[in-house]
């Protein structure tokens, strides 16, 4: 079983999936997120992948199934609520249960280790949190690269990245964005004289700040609550909460600026940026938006970052 998953909404508690971390694919769809296109490419053309699980959470993920329709691999779209309340949690819990049943039916085995997996994930996230709180002392590039490697392994083989100490007196910045497949961007950021002191990326700040998932009681409700109630994605439609949480952290970490790293045609972050930027401005915090064109990265923004470093 080698299921490629997209997004932090996919419950790791149910079974092992390989997190999509970027792929050089041939598929390019106009006005469509290249990150999602690359995911489609890998599912279709990487023979080591035998399944795909992705959310219905934005316009790009919403239509992935239309492009995967003809593959005979396991294809599952997990509907993720577009709101957060008791109805959404109950509904999402049922969707997670259906997802588990679909995997059992397709792969022909029974999933019985959800509680063990929850404990392992809680432990891993706690360790990640410690690492995240120590960003001041390490290279952010090494840290995030380590997380990406970790997420491509089966849960029981995952270990928290070992990152060497690397102090820096660079300009303190906070990163905002979706899953960052373009690791080389981070090299550019660090080489441009920035020190990343925090982020709200799904694989880093949002994962590290996730509260432990409970085991007692309805396990599916617990997982649903755990996923939906952590630091929010803009697809959950509560921009106010995202901005409030982020700005608290930005201030507490004394960040001098904010770098928005978005995928071209990722509308959720484009909409978020339009109001986020105003809020940062009113708080006297400078920001820059870098729009990446594919999941492998781009060098076009080096000059923009240099100018931004001068500005702050």
């Amino acid at each position: 079983m080698n299921i490629l998953s997209l997004s932090g909404f996919i419950p790791e508690q149910i079974c092992d999936t390989v997190r999509f971390t970027g792929y050089s694919g041939n598929i390019s769809i106009s006005h469509y997120c290249q990150y999602a296109s690359d995911y489609i490419s890998q599912v279709l053309y990487d023979n080591s992948v035998d399944g795909a699980v992705f959310p219905k959470s934005c316009d790009s993920t919403r239509i992935i199934k239309s492009y995967l329709g003809e593959t005979d691999k396991f294809v599952y779209q997990l509907p993720v609520p577009a709101r957060i309340d008791e109805y959404a949690i109950d509904y999402f819990a049922n969707q997670i249960k259906s997802y588990k049943q679909a995997i059992e039916a397709h792969y022909g085995f029974e999933i019985t280790d959800i509680a063990d997996r929850i404990e392992t994930i809680n432990r891993r996230n706690k360790e990640l949190k410690m690492l995240y709180e120590n960003l001041e002392m390490i290279s952010y590039y090494d840290y995030l690269q380590g997380i990406h490697k970790m997420l491509t392994k089966p849960l029981m083989e995952q270990s928290t990245p070992q990152v060497k100490e690397k102090k820096s007196d660079g300009k303190r910045v906070f990163l905002i964005g979706s899953f960052l497949t373009s690791e080389n961007v981070l090299n550019v950021i660090e080489n441009s004289g920035f020190k990343v002191v925090g982020d709200n990326l799904p694989e880093s700040g949002r994962l590290a700040n996730r509260k432990p998932c409970e085991i007692a009681g309805d396990i599916y409700i617990n997982i649903a609550k755990n996923i939906l109630s952590s630091r929010l994605s803009p697809t959950q439609n509560n921009f106010s909460e995202i901005i409030k949480d982020d700005i608290n952290e930005i201030k507490s970490k004394k960040a001098q600026g904010v770098i928005f790293l978005t995928q071209k045609y990722c509308e959720a972050y484009d909409y978020l940026y339009s109001v986020y930027e105003k809020k940062l401005n009113s708080e006297g915090i400078k920001s820059i938006k870098i729009s990446l064109t594919n999941s492998e990265g781009s060098k076009k923004f080096e000059l923009a970052l240099e100018a931004f470093a001068d500005m702050i």
Partner: peptide
């Protein structure tokens, strides 16, 4: 899923409650 995102920025502009029906 774009429209609920757009409505979020309208909510910021007008500072009124937003209900998203999923």
């Amino acid at each position: 899923n774009t429209l609920p995102n757009w409505w979020n920025i309208l909510a910021q502009r007008f500072n009124v409650p937003l209900i998203v029906i999923d």
